[in-house]
Amino acid sequence: MTPFVSLEAAALPIAQPNFDTDQIIPARFLSRDRELGLAECLFRDLRFAPDGSERPEFPLNKPEFRAARIVVGEKNFACGSSRENAVWALADYGFRAAIAPSFGDIFRNNCLKNGVLPVALPAAVVTGLIETLQATPGARVAIDLPSQTVTLPDGSQHRFEIDPFAKHCLLNGVDELAFTLSQVDEIAAFENRYGRENI
């Protein structure tokens, strides 16, 4: 996993509540080999017309947003399907963080497993941020994980919460699996006392 420590980058506004993971990557790309990269599939049907030409109205197609590394969504961002391909597509394009008032639960977990930082900020702050980003495309946002702070284009700073262990994994680029495997004796002990009564 790529470590995440801090980031200062342009942020892409997605001004729609309940934006679902089907919009982040449509189902027809789910069988695509990850090795091929999923950047082209990201926001596919919002970004490209059926003939493959760019839809100029979609923000990612505007020059100021092309180098965005942070996506900013509204309430319940990335709800719906559990497809981790949504995070992979974001990461393959270059996104390293997502800011929203709230996230789909599974998406949030998937982000943490892939070195993408989910940042929940108060709804009013996010609404203001989206307006700023729309008014001044390319405006930059800074995220510092050690201090758990976000600095917005207006200079305001906001603290965000993250589980300490998830923070540790992100900062060091290590994943949970290695840690769990180090606890395998505990799992075996549980299995012994638990028995096999259910299945």
Binding site: G80, S81, S82, R83, E84, N85, V87, I106, N109, N110, K113, N114, D175, E176, L177, T180, L181, V184, I187, E191
Partner: peptide, 29 residues
């Protein structure tokens, strides 16, 4: 995500992502 279905029998059942699937395969936890 529709693993929530199985809660109908009184189970605790939920959907997980692909990395979590590998975690469960490897550790059953």
């Amino acid at each position: 995500s529709h693993t929530s279905t199985h809660g109908a029998v009184g189970a605790l059942a939920f959907g997980i992502g692909s990395t979590e699937v590998s975690h469960v395969l490897a550790t059953q936890t």
